[in-house]
Design a protein around this nucleic acid. Structure first.
Lengths: 201, 201
DNA sequence: GACATTAACGAACGGTCGTTCTATTGTTCG
DNA sequence: CGAACAATAGAACGACCGTTCGTTAATGTC
C-alpha cells in the first residue's frame, strides 16, 4: 500500500469517528486536520471536496458494517440462525457500548433525507442494498421452513429494522439501558407471530 | 399580543420550517433573517443566542405536535380508539405528505443524541414526556380490557414508536410509498399479539 | 401629543468554513 | 544516486458564522 493510500485510510478512520459524533455535516476539515496533526490542505488533497470526503466516510462506514455485521452473520447457517446472528451483530454495532456517536447511517439518514445530492444518493443506494440483504436472509428462513411460507418478508424486514431504530433512539437519547432487551423481545414476538400476506379476516 | 411577541412567533414559524429541512444545527441566523426579510441582528435580538433559538424552535415544534397529535387524540374515547387516533395523527404528522423536512424531533434526536448541553436536555425531557403520554394511553386500553391485563405496556409503547420511526425512515430516505401501510400493518400485529410480561415457556 | 420603552437596523468584530494556490518535503523506482 | 513524482505544508482567499454595539424607527402610555 502506497504512502498516500495509507494516510488516506488513517484519515478516514478519524473522520469516521468524528462524523459519528458531529454528523457528516458537522464534520469539518479543519478539526479533522487538527485531530490528525496534519494541515488542512494536506487532508483536503486526499478528497478534493468536502462532499467527496463525506461519501468516502460513508463508504468506509459501510465496509466496517459489512465486516462487523453482514460477514460474521453469513458464517451462520442460512435460515433462522443467520437472522438471529444478523440481529445480534446489528444491535451490537449500532449501539456499540461505550463508544460515542452511535450508528453513522441512522444519523446520516436523518441528516440527508431531505438534501438532494450525491451524498444522499449514495446513502440511499447503500441503505437499499442493506435492506435487500436483510430480506434475502429472511427469505431463506422461509425456504428452510423456519418461517411459514406465507410470511410477508418485506414486512418482517421493515419491523426488524424498526426495532433496531427504536433501540438506537431509546438507548442514545433517552439513555434507556434496556433498549437492547426491548428490541430482542420485539424480535421474539416477530418470530412467534410473523406477519403474513393477504390475511382476509 | 405585543408587537415583539408577534414577530417572534412569525420568526419561529419560518425557523421551524427551515430547521425541518436543514436540521437544528444547519439552521443559521443569516439565512433565517433573509427568509424573513429582516436583519440578522433583528432576528438575533429575540433569542439572545443560537442555542436559545434552537430550544425555542423545539418548543414551538412541541406545541404544534401537541396540537396535531396529542390533543386531537384525547378527543377519542380512552382505550383502543384513542391509541388508534394517536397512531393515525402521529403518522400523518411525521411524514406530512408533500411537506419537506419530515419530523423535527426525529432529526434532532439523531443530531443531538451525542451533544451534551441544554438543547439535548430539553429534547430528552420532551421526548420522555411524549413517551409517558403514549404509555398512559396504552395503559388505559389495558384498563378498559381492550388489551389483556398482562400486557407489557412499555414494550408495547417501544414497538409502536419503532414502527413510526421506521415509517419515517423508509418514506423519507428510501422513498417507499407504502411505509405508512407497513407501520399500520405492524400495529395490527401488535394488537393481535400484544407483548406480555414475564412469559414463562 | 410628549415621552419612555421597545423593536429593528446596519455596520463591524473575530473566527471558521471550504477551497485554491505555490512551495517544499518525502517517497518511489530506474 | 538522482530524476520523476506523489504527498504535505503554509499562506491566503472570499464567504459566512454567531455575536456585539450604537443608532434609528416604531410602539405603547400618561
Amino acid at each position: 500500500m502506497s504512502k498516500g493510500e495509507q494516510t488516506r485510510q488513517h484519515i478516514l478512520g478519524t473522520a469516521l469517528a468524528m462524523a459519528r459524533e458531529c454528523g457528516l455535516e458537522g464534520l469539518t476539515i479543519g478539526s479533522l486536520a487538527e485531530g490528525l496533526s496534519m494541515s488542512k490542505s494536506g487532508v483536503f488533497a486526499h478528497f478534493g471536496s468536502k462532499e467527496e470526503l463525506q461519501i468516502a466516510v460513508l463508504k468506509e462506514a459501510a465496509e466496517r458494517f459489512a465486516d462487523q455485521v453482514l460477514r460474521p452473520a453469513l458464517a451462520a447457517p442460512r435460515g433462522l440462525a443467520r437472522i438471529r446472528a444478523i440481529l445480534d451483530h446489528w444491535l451490537a454495532y449500532s449501539v456499540a457500548s461505550g463508544l460515542p456517536g452511535g450508528c453513522l447511517f441512522i444519523a446520516a439518514a436523518a441528516e440527508f433525507d431531505d438534501k438532494p445530492g450525491p451524498v444522499r444518493d449514495f446513502l440511499q443506494q447503500q441503505q437499499g442494498q442493506w435492506r435487500q440483504s436483510l430480506l434475502k436472509a429472511i427469505g431463506m428462513a422461509v425456504e428452510t421452513g423456519e418461517l411459514p411460507p406465507e410470511t410477508d418478508v418485506e414486512q418482517f424486514g421493515f419491523e426488524m429494522f424498526a426495532l433496531v431504530l427504536a433501540c438506537h433512539h431509546d438507548q442514545r437519547l433517552l439513555s434507556q439501558r434496556n433498549a437492547v432487551d426491548r428490541a430482542r423481545t420485539g424480535f421474539e414476538r416477530l418470530l412467534d407471530h410473523p406477519p403474513v400476506h393477504l390475511s382476509r379476516h
